[in-house]
């Protein structure tokens, strides 16, 4: 599956400054593996040492936070947009 991955400002330096990069995979986890293979600077930024999503990263498959879908096993379809955002406060 070919998807678009949107990167937050602070991760763009690891992807040649791109705000959005194409990547392949059947799940969000596979997409991230492909992304890190292409942009090694992202290693450790998305997934922590235990293999879970980084605590201060929110990942959306289209509109939905994947923590409330199937986490990194969330399936993706062609044309899906995966958005990575830092966890920030409001209020």
């Amino acid at each position: 599956m070919a998807v678009e991955v949107r990167l937050p400002t602070l991760l763009r330096a690891h992807a040649d400054g791109a705000a959005s990069v194409p990547a392949d995979g059947a799940t969000v986890g596979e997409v991230f593996t492909a992304l890190v293979a292409k942009h090694p600077g992202l290693q450790g930024q998305l997934i922590d040492d235990s293999g879970s999503l980084h605590r201060f990263v929110n990942v959306y498959c289209n509109d939905d936070d994947i923590r409330y879908l199937d986490q990194l096993d969330t399936k993706v379809a062609d044309g899906d947009v995966i958005s990575i955002l830092p966890a920030v406060a409001g209020g």
Binding site: P8, L10, R55, F56, L85
Partner: peptide
């Protein structure tokens, strides 16, 4: 929960470790 897109607007975080979960 509806998350406002604040994470897209916050440009000045130095690293993800500056993130915050209440």
């Amino acid at each position: 929960a509806v998350e406002p897109p604040s994470g897209e607007l916050v440009q000045g975080l130095r690293s993800l470790e500056d993130g915050f979960v209440p």
